[in-house]
Design a protein around this nucleic acid. Structure first.
Lengths: 157, 157
DNA sequence: ATTTACCCTACCAATTTAGTAGGATTCAAA
DNA sequence: TTTGAATCCTACTAAATTGGTAGGGTAAAT
């Protein structure tokens, strides 16, 4: 009942569900690709096309994602026939913090609680008195806890 | 050094920081407004203009946010001279889960782990084997834990 | 030399965000 | 009962982001 009300309310912002803090497809696909490469029996190069097909991802889009992952030290690549992408590190060594930061951006939901990309809010005179700051600090810590204690090895089946 | 690399990489998606999971201004402002109203000595109506000025928020934008909060049972309002908005419940009774769901949307970052707005991913044949699902389930639980155990009273100074 | 497959840039449609504009409605006080 | 104060409500919009696509260039294996 309450859900119905929330779902159907007209609030001047359009229909409700799934506004802001959604995981991007980029991150989703990137993580799936990493998991797929990690679950390969050997570390032979796997072609983009194969990953794309197996995970139902647009090949061209995946291409740019894998490129990002290679540039950031997660993957190696080999060109030409028999080429493809392969994991550089072992899945146990790949923390979700690193994956999320590279694909999705900072863990924090507001810059004023970001560890690596701190920025002061220009509208907020006193951070220590800010309710948003207080709440988002807790959220950041909770998320960091999860991402730090989860490796690629933990999310493959 | 690593940050510099991440920050300045050109990855086909533009400059890096602050992509997706940012808190919207809507939620930020809404929470600040709630906190301001909660910190009033009495429960007399406070005008939009006063809230907007005190919290450095565009008045017109705040107007639509307060309207949403009223429609969802957080605030009462009074029209005409001496009118304004006021908290309906005590700050201790207002859970952050409720605030976030109304202002920001579902807590979960993907529909397939959402409690109230579950949806199956069309690209994912088996949820239990999905790495994204596994990770996002943990994240959802961690966030829920924070939001459930934090009330409006906890975030006012 | 040719085929394979990654590398790289540029472009684009749809959606969302963070508002603004302008008035309608309601209420209290003069 | 008029006037002004304040919320209520609809519609519009510029800028940014997302999730791609198009079209080649480059390196490596056969």
């Amino acid at each position: 009942m309450v859900n119905w009300l929330i779902f159907n309310e007209t609030n001047g912002f359009g229909k409700f569900p799934y506004l802001s803090p959604m995981l991007s497809k980029k991150t989703k696909y990137g993580l799936k690709a990493l998991a797929f490469l990690a679950s390969q029996p050997n570390r032979e190069p796997v072609q983009i096309a194969e990953v794309a097909k197996h995970e139902n991802i647009s090949q061209k889009f995946l291409e740019s994602i894998l490129l990002t992952l290679r540039r950031n030290g997660f993957l190696g690549s080999k060109k030409g026939k028999g080429g493809g992408y392969y994991l550089i590190k072992s899945p146990e060594e790949i923390q979700m913090t690193a994956v999320m930061r590279v694909l999705e951006g900072p863990i924090a939901m507001v810059p004023c609680v970001s560890l690596n990309f701190y920025e002061k809010c220009d509208d907020c005179p006193d951070e220590t008195a800010c309710s948003v700051h207080k709440l988002m600090l807790k959220v950041r810590d909770a998320n960091l806890e999860v991402y730090r204690n989860t490796t690629l090895a933990d999310v493959i089946s």
